[in-house]
């Protein structure tokens, strides 16, 4: 009886002490990145950031492995199978950029019940057991219109370049832009085309719609389409409107050239591909036992007239403006979410 009570007491003590013991013990944790797509410069920069930060963390002994896996076809079924493989391979955490917000939920629930920490980012998932590092895409749309309202108080006609039809991100940014236009009724959207986040598709779509458009004062975009729009507008011989850019190097280079030639002014905003490294550190924090709220928000990376040269200098030719996040950045984002 006495021994039993002692044992029970010891067990209780242990269970209290365990989380504390687990602190700073992610050294043998293995983290995997499940990525659904690699076919553009943003995703390539994302993978490079992950590899850089992951490798460093492995060398410093913070984690044991930070492997990346990319599906070839951007298909939810393929990614679900990939996640199931990761469960079998015994990863401690899976960081996922998902092909669909819902279609992976089954596989992710399986991972959670196997005791694996799942952190989704950029392409987030709705499964409640996973953490979500979401982008406020609507805000991204609103900020574009707000910027134009600041620059052009008298308003005017806008051309909207959307992304890939049927994709969640496209609907969200579009909703934000619409809301921005409602709040600033001096603007009206006179044309809307789908640029599929690709410069050549945007160029083609804008060239096709321009002849039927009245004068436009601004172009709102979704990223990866601003340079194509500028090329099409230039080819049509029109006055260059204010094109909001999306942090691509060719967009910023064009902007800098225009600024030097005729004082062109605009702004550029997007999400840094390095957001993958933020997700990495969040996963590490969860594994370490930190109290991390399930919903976190990614900060925008904004380029303005003032820091354009700086952003250009730090972005490789043909890539996209990027920052890698540190453990401290992740802690700051977590604290901010806790405060809400």
């Amino acid at each position: 009886m006495n021994t039993k009570a002692k044992l029970l007491g010891a067990a209780a003590l242990l269970s209290v002490a365990m989380p504390a013991l687990a602190q700073d013990q992610t050294g043998d944790a293995r983290i995997a990145l499940s990525n659904n797509y690699a076919g553009n410069s943003w995703r390539q920069a994302m993978l490079e950031s992950w590899e850089k930060v992951g490798q460093q963390a492995v060398e410093e002994g913070t984690v044991a492995a930070a492997d990346t896996f990319t599906t070839s076809e951007n298909q939810a079924t393929e990614q679900a199978a990939q996640i199931q493989n990761m469960i079998l391979q015994g990863y401690d955490a899976i960081v996922v950029n998902a092909a669909s917000p819902t279609a992976l939920n089954g596989a992710i629930a399986e991972a959670c019940s196997a005791g694996i920490t799942v952190v989704s980012f950029d392409g987030i998932v709705t499964e409640p057991c996973a953490w979500r590092i979401a982008v406020d895409f609507q805000e991204m749309g609103r900020q574009q219109v707000d910027y134009l309202a600041e620059r052009l108080p008298e308003g005017g006609n806008l051309l909207e370049i959307r992304g890939l039809a049927g994709v969640f991100v496209d609907d969200e940014i579009h909703a934000g832009i619409q809301q921005g236009v409602e709040e600033n009724p001096q603007f009206g959207i006179v044309g809307e085309v789908h640029g599929d986040w690709a410069q050549d598709v945007a160029q083609k779509a804008v060239a096709g719609v321009l002849p039927s458009l009245p004068e436009i004062v601004g172009v709102v975009t979704q990223g990866g389409d601003g340079y194509g729009a500028a090329q099409a507008i230039k080819a049509a011989g029109r006055d260059m409107p204010i094109i909001v850019m999306g942090n691509r190097q060719d967009e910023m280079q064009w902007w800098a050239d225009q600024r030097d030639a005729n004082g062109y002014e605009t702004m550029s905003l997007s999400i840094a591909p390095g957001v993958a490294t933020l997700a990495f550190w969040v996963a590490q924090q969860v594994l370490e036992g930190a109290d991390v709220p399930k919903d976190l928000t990614v900060p925008f990376l904004k380029v303005t007239q003032d820091n354009l040269d700086e952003a250009l200098a730090s972005t490789p030719d043909g890539s996209v403006a990027n920052v890698e996040y540190s453990l401290e950045d992740a802690k700051a984002v977590i604290e901010e979410a806790q405060a809400q």
Binding site: G39, N40, S41, Q44, D196, W197, A198, Q199, D200, Q203, Y227, G228, Q231, D250, G318
Partner: peptide, 10 residues
Amino acid sequence: SGGAALNMGT
């Protein structure tokens, strides 16, 4: 269109 992109042929 000012350069090759990975998704240019899609």
